[in-house]
Design a protein around this nucleic acid. Structure first.
Lengths: 238, 238
DNA sequence: TTGTGTTTCTACACGCCGTTCAGGAACGAC
DNA sequence: GTCGTTCCTGAACGGCGTGTAGAAACACAA
């Protein structure tokens, strides 16, 4: 499948590329997304800024790559937490996912900003790319959680005929219909609402709007997750 | 109350200050928050960049002022929409607030980023200031909506004794306890959750995460608002 | 081993940015 | 008319992303 010795050149290349990304992540963690400057990275590597252009055609491409890496790490954490809870406890799996996401966001606030905020002045995320893939993966994970809750949740939803598959992104729909053939489009809409509900308090907290108003955002978030799980007709034991 | 002729000098001064802010807002609307550059503003005014330092000690102070203005405009819009619905329809008032906020955010996405996102590389909002005041005002408005729903909503909440007034910002608590003496601390926690629920889908949509997945985010948001209102034991007629 | 083509890096230039500062011009008050 | 204040210019500093030209390092074939 792969060549054992990717020609030393390629090895050095990927190694340098990884070092660039690692330093960029470190700079971002230290000083925010705006601290990702090619000059600063090059300075830390003992190079000049222009050299980085051999690895990333522009700064935005570097940021795009970083977003993919960071987003993937976040989804990895969420999936791991979810899978630590048995299938027999769908509410607990939702809680685990939400708490893992929040814990990750609090541990990597700059990463959160990178993914969900304006990562960098003037940066616009591309339509496809690794970040998009991670997002679809995150969304698919959420769909799985909602699918497990759907038997009890569907009764609490508005009339199911309000949504069609055509209302959603074809790529995501393909994933969903393959993994959960019995799920109606309304469940996908519910998934997006669940996503928004998890995202709201998290975003407010990361961007400092919540901590100025309440001393223990974790308690508020926990209550909100419990209410969310209850609204799906499930129970959250913890 | 005020002097009729604030000494021509002062008049010119405030006028220039207003022009700076107006141009900054225009630049922001056109090119995003990063387009707010002192040089660009000065260029558009036929001045040099240094001249602006007579009006704002630094660029971040200009941004801080802008945040205050923009946030105030947003809250004005939300309050107006809310007050267009009679008190007898608390669910409708919540829906009006939420829809007005979303409409404002969609009409002023850069303003939304300015308030709720990373407005500018390295910018950190000050602890107090006009932005903070507008935020407290927004929060107080939401508390009013929740207070109207509290008689029906309290039954759906977890045990009321989980929160104390000391858990929240004293300034906000003072406002709330003065306006709604009978409200318990749990209602304030609920308010923050309502805020987060309105904010989540809005933030995802403004930052482009939703529109890539669903064609009609408005429908999803409307459903979410309906579910929110229903979770408070109210009904939304529209 | 030598030659050759590719890749990677430096050095420098361009134009942008926020910020500072000395000096000059306009203004208000006396 | 004079004087203190205010406003603005112009130049400068350092930092930024981005290109380009050329040197150096490398892989590989003859």
């Amino acid at each position: 499948m792969n060549e054992p010795t990717p020609s030393r050149r390629a090895r050095l290349r990927t190694q340098t590329s990884e070092e660039i990304k690692a330093i960029a992540l470190r700079l971002m963690a230290a000083g925010g997304p705006d601290a990702i400057s090619l000059r600063a990275i090059a300075r830390e590597m003992g190079m000049t800024a222009g050299a980085i252009y051999s690895y990333f055609p522009t700064r935005d491409d570097l940021v795009t790559t970083l977003i993919g890496d960071v987003y993937t790490a976040a989804v990895d954490a969420a999936e791991a937490a979810r899978d630590a809870v048995p299938d027999s406890d769908p509410g607990g799996r939702i809680m685990a996912w939400g708490q893992a996401m929040r814990a990750w966001a609090l541990a990597n606030p700059e990463g959160f900003r990178l993914i969900y905020g304006d990562p960098v002045p003037g940066y616009r995320p591309p339509e496809d790319g690794p970040g998009r893939a991670a997002e679809v993966r995150a969304c698919t994970g959420l769909v799985g959680l909602v699918a497990a809750a759907w038997p009890t949740a569907r009764a609490h939803q508005p009339d199911d005929r309000a949504y069609e598959w055509a209302d959603f992104d074809p790529g995501l729909v393909a994933h969903v219909r393959e993994d959960f053939p019995d799920l109606p489009p309304a469940a996908l809409a519910l998934t997006l609402r669940v996503w928004g509900r998890m995202h709201g308090l998290m975003a407010l907290e990361i961007y400092g709007h919540l901590r100025a108003l309440v001393h223990d955002p974790a308690a508020v978030y926990r209550d909100e997750m419990r209410a969310l799980i209850a609204s799906l007709g499930l129970t959250a034991d913890r």
